[in-house]
Amino acid sequence: MIIDFVLNGKKVRLNSKPERRLVDILRDRYSISSITGDCYRGSCGNCMVLLQGRPVPSCLVLAANIRNKEIMTLEGFRNTDEYRDIEGGFEEAGVKLCEPVKPALILLVHDLIQREENPEQSEIRNIFRSIETRCGGESTLFRAIHLAAYFRRSRNGS
């Protein structure tokens, strides 16, 4: 099956079985190394990507579902100003994330502060439900997310 989609801002054409999982396609065909196929049930978050701008576990997305869609991985997101807001927040708070959980946390934080420029504690708490990890202390993570939101607001001039 031929599938056209946009990966990290570039149009690409893929020939794949329609029932292959997006995480494996991205890793095997496009050498996207920020994500891994870990739990294959959508609970760990290690394969998080943006699909049409929203974070989704790419192990629960099939090749057939990405036709004419936009996929952004952490590799592509790294080149954006939005990423720098989050990176700044995490650095300032001294968060040292375990590698596997990075894409999930960064993309989920982006999604949250995109929707809520000054997120409440409960909304922040909610995003952690999409990941499964023993890494990360609560106080530094919360601080990092508040700082990221602050940097985003400052950059947007609000």
């Binding site: 079985k17 999982r21 494996d24 294959y40 959508g42 629960l60 579902n65």
Partner: peptide, 15 residues
Amino acid sequence: FAGGTWLLGREQKKI
């Protein structure tokens, strides 16, 4: 196959 979260989540194989 719509969202597929259940269909794929219970099938924890690569394909």
